[in-house]
Simulated assay, not measured.
Amino acid sequence: IATKLGVSEEEVTNMNRRLGGDASLNAPLRADGESEWQDWLADDTAVSQETQLAEDEEKSIRRGLLEEAMQELTDREKHILTERRLKDDPVTLEELAGQYGVSRERVRQIEVRAFEKLQKAMRAAAEERNLVDV
């Protein structure tokens, strides 16, 4: 077989051993039987529990800071900021200008000022909780 395939006899022997049949993942690794093959399998695509927990905690903290900081804004600023920055499909300046009866430029100015107020409030809240370096 080795000659016919153009490989060494050792490769044929190794392949025969590998093709010798399916092995159970519950089969013991050693004679003592303390560990099984499945104990050594790892899911490289899965996020570790520690990483997932840390990400969830950070997301929760950030959401809390955002909700707290949003209280510093007026209703109009909240609405404009939410529509322009916090939605997957943001509303245009033109649409908001029509709702409020002002120019697109004025809506843009309100959005910028509201975003600056929001950043300042979030930073202050984060510093208050010792979440950032001062």
Results as ranks from 00 to 15, higher is better:
residue 82 T to M: 06
residue 123 R to S: 05
residue 79 H to C: 00
residue 6 G to E: 09
residue 74 T to I: 03
residue 35 S to E: 15
residue 95 E to T: 09
residue 40 W to I: 12
residue 44 D to Q: 11
residue 74 T to N: 01
residue 17 R to N: 09
residue 120 K to N: 10
residue 58 E to R: 14
residue 113 R to Q: 13
residue 93 L to E: 10
residue 90 P to Q: 06
residue 61 I to L: 13
residue 110 I to K: 00
residue 54 A to F: 10
residue 94 E to V: 02
residue 21 G to D: 08
residue 10 E to C: 04
residue 47 V to W: 12
residue 104 R to Q: 13
residue 92 T to F: 01
residue 120 K to E: 15
residue 12 V to G: 05
residue 45 T to H: 12
residue 56 D to I: 10
residue 27 A to Y: 05
residue 82 T to G: 04
residue 93 L to D: 13
residue 129 R to L: 03
residue 38 Q to I: 15
residue 84 R to L: 10
residue 49 Q to H: 12
residue 127 E to K: 14
residue 84 R to P: 00
residue 47 V to K: 13
residue 27 A to P: 01
residue 85 R to C: 08
residue 76 R to I: 13
residue 47 V to L: 15
residue 104 R to Y: 06
residue 85 R to I: 00
residue 33 G to P: 02
residue 97 A to R: 06
residue 127 E to R: 12
residue 26 N to A: 08
residue 77 E to K: 00
residue 112 V to L: 10
residue 2 A to Q: 07
residue 103 S to T: 15
residue 85 R to H: 06
residue 52 Q to A: 15
residue 17 R to H: 09
residue 18 R to T: 01
residue 117 K to Y: 07
residue 60 S to Y: 11
residue 129 R to G: 02
residue 50 E to Q: 14
residue 104 R to S: 11
residue 117 K to L: 10
residue 117 K to P: 02
residue 62 R to E: 10
residue 76 R to A: 06
residue 50 E to I: 13
residue 116 E to L: 11
residue 113 R to C: 03
residue 40 W to T: 12
residue 105 E to S: 15
residue 89 D to P: 00
residue 11 E to Q: 12
residue 91 V to W: 01
residue 117 K to C: 03
residue 125 A to K: 05
residue 57 E to P: 03
residue 10 E to K: 11
residue 3 T to I: 10
residue 123 R to V: 12
residue 26 N to V: 02
residue 85 R to T: 01
residue 123 R to E: 09
residue 62 R to Q: 13
residue 45 T to W: 11
residue 66 L to W: 00
residue 82 T to W: 03
residue 73 L to G: 01
residue 94 E to I: 01
residue 76 R to Y: 00
residue 131 L to I: 02
residue 97 A to K: 06
residue 14 N to A: 08
residue 103 S to N: 08
residue 7 V to K: 07
residue 64 G to P: 08
residue 122 M to R: 15
residue 92 T to Q: 04
residue 89 D to Y: 10
residue 115 F to V: 01
residue 69 A to W: 00
residue 104 R to E: 14
residue 74 T to D: 02
residue 108 R to T: 02
residue 118 L to I: 04
residue 63 R to H: 08
residue 38 Q to V: 15
residue 94 E to D: 11
residue 13 T to H: 09
residue 29 L to A: 11
residue 66 L to F: 04
residue 79 H to K: 03
residue 113 R to F: 07
residue 63 R to L: 11
residue 128 E to P: 01
residue 61 I to C: 05
residue 133 D to L: 08
residue 19 L to P: 04
residue 49 Q to W: 08
residue 47 V to N: 08
residue 14 N to E: 12
residue 56 D to Q: 15
residue 88 D to L: 08
residue 130 N to R: 06
residue 1 I to G: 11
residue 25 L to P: 00
residue 24 S to L: 14
residue 11 E to S: 10
residue 9 E to N: 12
residue 71 Q to E: 09
residue 98 G to S: 13
residue 107 V to N: 05
residue 73 L to A: 02
residue 106 R to M: 10
residue 70 M to H: 02
residue 107 V to H: 03
residue 24 S to D: 14
residue 97 A to T: 05
residue 83 E to A: 15
residue 114 A to L: 07
residue 20 G to P: 02
residue 133 D to W: 07
